[in-house]
Every structure is written in C-alpha cells, then in structure tokens.
Amino acid sequence: MTTEVDKNQKLTMIVFDGDLDKAMASFIIATGAAAMGKQVTMFFTFWGLNVLRKDESANVKKPFLEKMFERMMPRGPKKLGLSNMNMAGMGPKVMKKMMKEKNVSSLDELIEMAQDLDVKMVACTMSMDVMGLTQEELIDDLDYAGVASYLSEADEANTNLFI
C-alpha cells in the first residue's frame, strides 16, 4: 500500500501504555494519518514496549531480576489486557471476539498495516534498558533511539499525541 507522504504534515505520538484498547487506538490513529499522507512516528516507551514484544521468548541471557520482570510483562499484542473491564483476562477475549464479528482489524493486523504504510516505530532505548528488554525480544523493522530523537521529530510535527 503506497501513499504519497506530505513531508510538511507530520504526526508523532508517544505510546506509553501497554493496554490493548489504548494500543489499538494508537495504531488506528497512526494508520489513518499515514493513509492520509502524513509522515507518522510512534515512540514506544515503558509499558508501550510490551506492544512490540515478540510472542515467543528470544532466550536472551539476563540477570535474575530482569528475567523475572520479563516474565511478569505481557509478551506481545496477543497477551495485552484491557485498561477497563479486564475481568481476569476475559475482557480482551470478549473484545477480540466482538472485533472479529464486526470485521475490525486485530492489533497484529494494525501493526502490519502500519509497517506497510511506512509508519516509523521507535523503541525507547532508555526504557528498554530499565525494563531489561533487548532488540532480539522486539518485532522486526523498528528504529531504536532516545528521547532527544523523538523530541526532534516532535518539534517538526503538526500533531503530537500521548497515549
């Protein structure tokens, strides 16, 4: 899917939250803006990094505390909970069922669509360090940078969001 990108129309967003519904909203906005021709950058930090985790373990050697922290966090889009009405894990299952019935794209499909639309997805390296995450544990085709890189892009953007 190719869309002519207007270099003067930029949207940046910080994806701070790792809840399914907020991640969905982030990618719906990002893909919508990209489809309209905007240059889009998504900066994933702290809990938002869980959206980008691979489903399977990367078997990376880590210190004990980092390994325990890794096991407590959801591993990828299929494991994210809801911000409200999580109901011990039943909420996301109900929501995914309703989305499928209404032909709403899944989070995995939205991520793929964002990649196809050349949405720039940036993983915050400082947050990765704090949370004990490595590049091997995250999906392919990401950029890795710190907050200064994001702020530089945000300075040039027409729209900046925090989700």
Rank of each mutant, 00 (worst) to 15 (best):
F43V: 13
V5W: 14
N8K: 09
L138Y: 04
K61G: 07
D55Y: 07
P77K: 05
D19T: 11
N59M: 04
K120Y: 01
F44I: 12
S152C: 01
I139F: 10
Q9K: 14
E70I: 11
P92T: 08
G32C: 09
F162S: 10
M121V: 04
L11V: 10
S57G: 03
G37A: 07
N103P: 10
M36D: 00
G76M: 07
V104P: 01
K61E: 07
S149I: 02
M90C: 03
T31Q: 11
L138I: 07
D141E: 15
G81S: 06
E4F: 14
F27L: 12
M85T: 01
G32L: 14
G18W: 04
V5S: 14
D6E: 15
G18F: 06
D140N: 06
L49I: 14
M13N: 06
L110V: 00
N158T: 07
K102G: 07
F64S: 02
M73V: 08
M128G: 10
K7C: 11
K38V: 05
K102C: 08
P63A: 07
V104A: 08
P77G: 08
K67E: 00
A34Q: 09
L110F: 06
D118P: 00
D155K: 14
K54H: 03
G132S: 02
N158E: 04
G76N: 04
V147S: 10
D141H: 10
A33R: 15
E66F: 05
M36K: 10
P77M: 10
D19W: 04
A157F: 06
S152T: 05
E153W: 06
P74F: 10
V15F: 07
G37S: 05
A154V: 12
K78T: 07
A123M: 01
K96A: 15
M121S: 04
V104I: 15
S149R: 05
V5T: 15
D143C: 13
I28N: 09
S26G: 14
A154M: 05
N103A: 11
T134R: 06
K54P: 12
A30T: 11
M42R: 09
N103W: 01
G32A: 15
A157Y: 08
D143S: 15
M128P: 01
A35H: 14
L80V: 08
